[in-house]
């Protein structure tokens, strides 16, 4: 398991090689690089560090907001959370790394949209524990394979999670039981992740495991493509930051 055979993003490989600093904008998320290493990632599909920390009550929402207010301008929110005694180093690293790999998985998902790199752009969260672009690439590829190895029906990833009755004597672990309990037949895996304050990939994986065990329904049709958005016309615009516009659109639609 050395180099990835087909890179998930050839552009990311190139940027890592040239030790670039800036933001890599793609359809489903953004990766932030410093000297070619990934220091942060975000995606509309993945709950951010704030959701992960506040949902379970680890951090009050006001504590988070204050950290962003006071340290956001210096791009050192993560550091501030530790220095002000709100979090311990280990907690910050565990939570942030989890969020970075989670968002990167979605940011690097296959897309037909354009990929852009903005040199010099940083993220207000600041650097916690940089990871190599290669490690993120490899992990993203591994995660895709893992999902399909568990239950090769991607339709369950986006459909509402509908629990099915258990067979007599069938058991399920505490984490997945909590997931089933929150599944009201309407919420999608992404919504459940946000509700439970868990990484989105972990939720997808648990949903696939539950579907494989027959405890979650697998939609028969590959969810009749929700009217696939007509291929965006490529307009001759001066500065077509289409990736950004599409992410904005996705974010807005997510709040509909």
């Amino acid at each position: 398991m050395s180099a990835v055979a087909t890179p998930v993003s050839p552009m990311l490989v190139r940027l890592a090689a040239e030790k670039a600093t800036g933001a890599l904008l793609r359809d489903h998320g953004t990766l932030y690089l410093v000297d070619g290493r990934i220091v942060h990632a975000e995606s509309p599909a993945a709950p951010g560090v704030d959701v992960l920390l506040t949902t379970g009550g680890r951090l009050p929402r006001e504590g988070w907001d204050e950290a962003v207010d006071r340290a956001g301008a210096h791009r050192a929110v993560g550091r501030f959370l530790v220095d002000s005694g709100r979090l311990h180093d280990g907690e910050l690293e565990i939570c942030h790394l989890g969020a970075v790999f989670d968002a990167a998985f979605f940011a690097l998902s296959p897309t037909s949209g354009p990929t852009r790199f903005r040199y010099g752009v940083g993220h207000w969260f600041g650097t916690v524990r940089p990871v190599s672009a290669e490690a993120v690439e490899r992990e993203t590829a591994r995660r895709r394979e893992l999902l399909d190895a568990v239950w090769p029906y991607a339709a369950v990833d986006t459909a509402p999670v509908v629990p099915r009755p258990a067979a007599p004597g069938q058991t399920v672990g505490a984490r997945r039981r909590a997931l089933l309990a929150a599944a009201d037949g309407k919420r999608t895996p992404a919504e459940l992740a946000r509700l439970l304050g868990r990484p989105a990939f972990h939720t997808l994986l648990d949903v696939r495991r539950l579907a494989a065990a027959g405890l979650v329904a697998t939609p028969l049709d590959p969810a009749p493509d929700p009217a696939p958005p007509p291929p965006l016309p490529v307009l001759p615009v001066a500065d077509p930051d289409i990736a950004l516009l599409r992410r904005l659109r996705d974010a807005l639609e997510a709040h509909l």
Binding site: P165, A166, Q170, T171, V172, G173, A174, R177, L180, A181
Partner: peptide, 11 residues
């Protein structure tokens, strides 16, 4: 704990 008859321990 019961959840559609699901047996489970660590609640």
């Amino acid at each position: 704990a019961g959840n559609d008859g699901l047996a489970g321990a660590a609640d």
